[in-house]
């Protein structure tokens, strides 16, 4: 399965209602996501890529690039 960074940026953008999400935008500091938004982003990624994100991994996600790396690792791509 090929998972691109653009896909992850789009996923985050859809959850937050933001059009432009950069790979290195800080999801909380720059995009204003709160803890519920983070859960929604993680849950959407879990459903879409059939993975399970632990709570410890969840708090390590700061940017779209972080989430992309995590999804690649968990999906075994």
């Amino acid at each position: 399965m090929s998972i691109t960074l653009d896909e992850i940026c789009t996923l985050i953008g859809l959850q937050l209602g933001i059009q432009e999400v950069g790979a290195n935008h800080h999801i909380q500091a720059n995009l204003g996501a709160d803890s519920v938004d983070l859960v929604n982003i993680a849950a959407t990624a879990e459903e879409k890529y059939q993975i399970e994100i632990s709570e410890t991994d969840l708090v390590s996600i700061k940017t779209a690039a972080d989430l992309h790396q995590l999804v690649l690792r968990l999906a075994g791509s």
Binding site: S35, V36, V39, N40, A42, A43, I53, S54
Partner: peptide, 16 residues
């Protein structure tokens, strides 16, 4: 703990 995390995630709830 793992099951609670899974349940919260499926229901889109925070553990808090």
């Amino acid at each position: 703990t793992a099951a609670l995390t899974r349940g919260c995630r499926r229901r889109r709830l925070t553990i808090n």
